[in-house]
Simulated assay, not measured.
Amino acid sequence: MGWTHYSGPASAFPPMSTWKTFEQIFNANQSEMLQTGDTHEDVGRIWNAVEAAAKEIGVEERVIFCIIMQESTGNVGIGTTTDPGGKATGGLMQAEESPAFPGKHGLSQAQISAMVTAGTKHFKGNLKQLDDKDTASTIYRALRLYNSGKINESNLSDGEKATPSYVSDIANRLQGRTNKDKGRDEL
């Protein structure tokens, strides 16, 4: 299964019925997380953190995990970066106000959960800017806001100075594709 390029309005992106389960998506990405230097314990703690944040904050667990894979490949020791607005972002979800542990692996559940909670709260804020409904359309639009802070409703691949393929990439991840599928593009 190759990587598909999606663009246009949210309606041009795949429906939730095509998304894999959280377990399927997570299992497909375990080897990539381990290749970052994560320990097996780190990977297990990411699972725990995603489930807890999904329940506590009210965000789809598959979406949380796919943001993690897009932003950090699940690398708990990823450093901080700067968003298009010049603000520092860090942690598994590269979110503002998230703790970061550059170069460190073998983190505690509390440290990993803090990163996932910060990113999930940020994404929930994007959902609330829209209509806060758990639909594919709202999620895709909120993903554009998460990445760029702006949204062109007619083209979610308009990066507004951020990553143009961000929403498309996560749509692929939600369907069970991984980074190794990127080289095998489908039209």
Rank of each mutant, 00 (worst) to 15 (best):
152 N>E: 13
154 S>V: 10
113 S>T: 15
55 K>D: 13
77 G>Y: 08
49 A>I: 05
78 I>N: 02
53 A>G: 01
134 D>Q: 08
114 A>K: 01
172 N>A: 08
68 I>A: 00
107 L>I: 02
146 Y>I: 02
131 D>S: 13
137 S>N: 14
88 A>C: 01
138 T>P: 03
78 I>K: 02
157 S>K: 12
161 K>S: 14
89 T>M: 10
164 P>Y: 15
154 S>E: 09
91 G>I: 05
124 K>S: 11
50 V>W: 00
65 F>Y: 09
109 Q>G: 09
93 M>Y: 07
47 W>K: 12
78 I>L: 03
74 G>K: 03
168 S>V: 10
159 G>C: 08
50 V>I: 04
62 R>M: 05
68 I>P: 00
145 L>D: 08
122 H>S: 08
63 V>Y: 07
57 I>W: 06
64 I>M: 03
165 S>P: 03
59 V>G: 01
158 D>C: 03
167 V>M: 13
164 P>M: 12
75 N>H: 10
119 G>T: 13
63 V>F: 05
123 F>A: 01
51 E>Y: 08
58 G>S: 02
144 R>V: 04
138 T>A: 15
87 K>Y: 11
139 I>G: 03
160 E>N: 15
69 M>V: 11
53 A>S: 09
73 T>L: 11
52 A>H: 04
76 V>N: 06
120 T>V: 10
167 V>Y: 07
84 P>E: 10
53 A>D: 01
167 V>S: 11
